[in-house]
């Protein structure tokens, strides 16, 4: 069963076509990567999936809900994390999580916060203001916030950006475990090719607002004759091929 179905999704800002009629579907429990350079349309696509942005054309259905008419029913079962969106810095971690327990109508907030603190090793951070945390600690807290309602769909925009390799690896391991245990569907926009290769069963590659390639990481590597996704990314971004490069 497809949890996300996107058809003919388009976003135009005056003369700029940010997203150009893309379509894709995401099956339940899958982790799909959204790859593309800066300005490729990934963040715009995620913003439309979250209802932050009204599409110029096309439709989005998430968990059976039409996002144009009934986005709040879907939003209650989804969540989102991005290093570019912050939590109020003067509130403690616990207070922040409590706010989102209320916003997502989570039963027994104290118990849920304790569960997340156990899972993400947050106990020492609960009483500290969110603004005083390191980048890695903030990422763990943002993840806790994004899991507060046990989402069935999780949208992650560059979840490990600006993290050191150790913390990044911990986050990726945790996401793998969470998806396996919960069956959650994840859409992951990232510039980290290793991360996409490790976490995603399928990848959508975007360029200039369009999906220009798609497939499993293995399929993409085979199709482009490359050994890692970074080379595939560069091939697509620079309109080059492995064969032509070998000739040069």
């Amino acid at each position: 069963m497809d949890v996300i179905t996107v058809t003919g999704l388009t976003k135009r800002y005056d003369a700029t076509l940010a997203v150009d009629g893309i379509g894709f579907s995401v099956p339940e429990g899958a982790t799909i990567g959204l790859l593309g350079g800066n300005g490729a349309g990934k963040t715009t696509t995620i913003a439309m999936l979250l209802g932050l942005l009204i599409p110029t054309a096309g439709s989005i259905r998430i968990l059976g809900h039409d996002m144009a008419r009934d986005r709040f029913s879907a939003l209650a079962k989804m969540n989102f994390s991005s290093p570019y969106v912050a939590l109020p810095s003067r509130l403690t971690v616990e207070q922040n999580l409590r706010v989102y327990c209320h916003l997502y109508d989570v039963a027994k907030p104290s118990r849920r916060i304790a569960e997340l603190a156990d899972e993400l090793n947050l106990h020492d951070l609960l009483g500290r203001p969110a603004g005083q945390l390191s980048a890695g600690q903030k990422t763990r807290v943002a993840l806790a916030k994004s899991l507060i309602n046990r989402p069935r769909v999780l949208l992650l925009d560059e979840p490990t950006a600006s993290l050191d390799p150790d913390t990044g690896d911990l986050v990726r391991s945790w996401l793998e475990r969470y998806r396996a245990e919960s069956g959650c569907t994840i859409l992951l926009a990232s510039h980290n090719m290793g991360e996409v290769e490790r976490l995603c069963s399928d990848v959508l590659v975007m360029k200039q607002g369009r999906i220009v390639d798609r497939g499993s990481p293995h399929e993409l590597l085979e199709r482009h004759g490359r050994h890692d996704l970074e080379e595939v990314f560069l091939d697509i971004a620079r309109n080059r091929t492995a064969t032509a490069e070998a000739l040069v």
Partner: peptide
């Protein structure tokens, strides 16, 4: 404005808050 200053609007508006 507090929500804007704390860059929290993105989280607030993707929650089910009407």
């Amino acid at each position: 404005l507090e929500e804007i200053w704390s860059r929290n609007l993105g989280h607030v508006f993707v929650s089910p808050l009407r």
